[in-house]
Simulated scan of single mutants.
Amino acid sequence: MSEVLERTAPVTPSGPAPAGKVDLTVGDPDQRRLYWAVMDSWTVVRRGLIHYKRQPIIIVWQLGFPILSVLLYAYVFGGAMKSPGGDYRDYLMPGMFAMTMAIGFMNTATVVVHDATQGVIDRFRSMPMAPSAVVAGRGGNDILAAVAELTILAATAVATGWRSDGGFLATLSAFALLVLLRFSLIWLGVWLGLLIPSPEAAGGLYAIVFPMTMISSIFVPPSTMPDWLGVVAAWNPLSSTAAATRELFGNPVASDGSWVQENAVLMAVVWPLVLTAIFLPLAIRRFHRLSR
């Protein structure tokens, strides 16, 4: 109750705040709302991190599929795969990074639908917190988890013999593009999580993930596919991120001369911005609709 009064209390003149503390009873009301929105979002992020700490098997499960895929394709199928140049693992690893960032939206959707069906989101709405904190906090938590996943996966790739030959800044830029892709798909996961009626139904998202990852340049160049399917694969946002990271990492790049493949770095920025512009407003609108 004291927090409610503190947030809604009228602005009144007062003396200086004690050292090391912020006086939230004075100043611009918009600034106070922004402050509480950030703090509430951080509270939701902390909740998610504590959940990971108490149930680390969740992180292990999320990383299990990508790591097994790396080992499977690198050592079991790698000898039969044709690379545009060099070792197939050098072509594969950037694609696996992109795939890991992409399929993460399933984890987001599963957590959101669980919170929605178990009454957690209803509890949040009944508390004195900023309405945007639930969506923003979920996004912040998933970005931190994605960075951890990407770090572990990169270490696994290095252990299998993969290396980045693109230099420090280029390598850093490649990982930034991967995180940007994950950021854009978070909002797809939140939106789907607020639409799906039950956690069991979230398993049906594999029907979206499977063609999205397979009809791309993650595993093989689009030029090896039938013409019409190769065009679809080339324009897949995952293909742009995979091709851009290969270029920045200095790994083999396959291009058939099409515009989208020749401008992979540009499209690796444009696609996430477009996806964010579409699904972030949809997620916020859906959350507000459930709040009525």
Rank of each mutant, 00 (worst) to 15 (best):
E3L: 12
V4F: 14
E6M: 06
A9M: 00
A9Y: 03
P10D: 04
P13N: 08
P13Q: 12
S14W: 03
P16H: 10
A17P: 10
P18N: 07
P18L: 14
V22I: 13
D23G: 14
D23L: 07
P29D: 11
L34P: 15
L34V: 12
W36N: 10
W36I: 10
D40Y: 11
S41V: 02
T43Y: 11
R46P: 01
R47V: 10
H51N: 12
K53V: 08
Q55W: 14
I59S: 02
Q62H: 15
G64R: 10
F65Y: 09
L68S: 01
L71Q: 13
Y73C: 06
A74F: 07
V76N: 04
M81C: 00
G85R: 04
D87V: 14
Y88M: 04
R89C: 07
M93V: 13
A98H: 06
T100G: 01
M101A: 09
N107G: 14
T108D: 01
T110S: 10
V112F: 15
H114Y: 05
T117G: 15
G119H: 11
V120P: 14
I121M: 14
R123I: 01
R125T: 08
M127A: 02
G137Y: 03
R138E: 15
G139I: 00
G139M: 01
G140Y: 11
N141T: 02
D142N: 13
L144I: 08
A146C: 06
A148T: 09
L150H: 01
T151S: 08
G161L: 00
W162M: 12
W162V: 13
W162P: 10
R163K: 14
L169P: 01
T171I: 15
L172P: 02
L177K: 08
L177V: 13
L178G: 13
L181N: 04
W187M: 08
W187N: 10
L188P: 04
L192C: 03
S198E: 10
P199Q: 06
E200N: 12
G203D: 03
G204Q: 09
M214Q: 12
S216D: 01
S217N: 02
I218R: 06
V220I: 07
P222H: 14
D227G: 05
V231K: 00
V232C: 11
L238D: 01
A243V: 06
A244W: 14
A244C: 14
A244F: 06
A244Q: 12
T245Y: 14
R246E: 03
E247V: 09
E247G: 15
F249G: 12
N251I: 15
V253E: 05
Q261C: 13
P272C: 01
T276N: 00
F279D: 13
F279W: 09
L282P: 00
I284C: 09
F287S: 02
F287P: 01
